[in-house]
Nucleic acid binder design. Sequence first.
DNA 1: CAGAGACTAAGTCATACGCCTTAAAAGTCA
DNA 2: TGACTTTTAAGGCGTATGACTTAGTCTCTG
Lengths: 214, 214
Amino acid sequence: MKLARSDRGSQTRELLLATAERLFAEYGVEGVSNRQVSEAAGQSNNFAVGYHVGSKEDLVVAIVRPHAASIERRCGEMVAQLPDSPGLRDWVSCLVRPAVEHLASLGVPSWYARFIAQATTHPTFRRLVVGEAFASRSFQRCHEAMFRLVPLLPEEVRRERDDMGRLMLVHICAERERALQEGTASPHSTWESTATGLVDALVGLWLAPVTARW
Amino acid sequence: MKLARSDRGSQTRELLLATAERLFAEYGVEGVSNRQVSEAAGQSNNFAVGYHVGSKEDLVVAIVRPHAASIERRCGEMVAQLPDSPGLRDWVSCLVRPAVEHLASLGVPSWYARFIAQATTHPTFRRLVVGEAFASRSFQRCHEAMFRLVPLLPEEVRRERDDMGRLMLVHICAERERALQEGTASPHSTWESTATGLVDALVGLWLAPVTARW
DNA sequence: CAGAGACTAAGTCATACGCCTTAAAAGTCA
DNA sequence: TGACTTTTAAGGCGTATGACTTAGTCTCTG
């Protein structure tokens, strides 16, 4: 069968992706060359990344994709179990918890949160990554449902607070991931507490009064 | 007199800093070599950065310092003009507006917000930059005053929301700076509106109810 | 089992890097 | 003016990079 043959290749590919994710989180996306990734993954061929994945942009996208899929799946499941006429807090939870629980499922140390924080902040990888990681169906649906529950906001403020929410989710997760690796707290309680804190904060953010402008 | 002599040198140095700030914001801090900075600044000596500033870490700190000083000055002035028994919103404004007004004063295009967003996200430059940019006296004072007005928060939540506020300030300013460069909105109204939006959001964040954990 | 295709090892090549040296130019002061 | 210091110009040196080639290994399929 074909699996066994393509297995070795795809194993190597996944090893490369995991290694790249870790190195990028530790030293910055631009701070690590494809060559270093190949060598750190134990490949004698310094062009292994080029062969199995492609350019650095391809590599970044390839790292994001499976994580995004897992989060999307969790998000879909959570939406399906929502009570009748869910409130703002329910929808916010559907945006926060799938991502946090995915990170929790990775164990310690995980690297994805720090990787994604950097990638979304980088001027050239930004578009690529945001499109890949935040454009899923369930995610979109939660956003729309959420907007309907805060109907008083002008479009501009809505967009602004949406940005704020995304930034908080990404970067707070990155900081917790770092703290978790350095510290002594139990992973589960830390991630659970992070999710609760984020949901509280995001609800407060969306419900904050709006000062008129101009 | 000595000024004239050191003038040429310090002018070159400042040209290097400004060039580096722009290139870092455009292509990422790690994506630009000191050599490229020297050459983009029109210096034939490709070691100009090394001569005038030092290592890349020194360069990053040197870029931050004057901006941080300007923001600190504005913050001090704003605190001095605060009304008697200022409210939460007043102290939040003292944390947000000095930074935003400093960015507005730079004109369009400015690069500092995007630079600082990346630098504070980078795993190795993080400590360096956060210490330099957010550790000023007036800033600390505003924080403490703010905390006294939200006394119910557990220490952990306080710290968490403090992180959130800092992240929002930095990254939202970076997004606005980018939008401003690409878009057509008048700079003043955009920055003013950004400040208002941030203050609204941060007040909402600090006043958000806290769910018990564990 | 033999051969085709997928994968890895090993290494080449031009380019770009950081760091450094040397020499000329610009500026200062006795 | 002439000795002295600071700054800039020009370029060398060893190393690391991305892109690529070639040779060989492994695994399945016919």
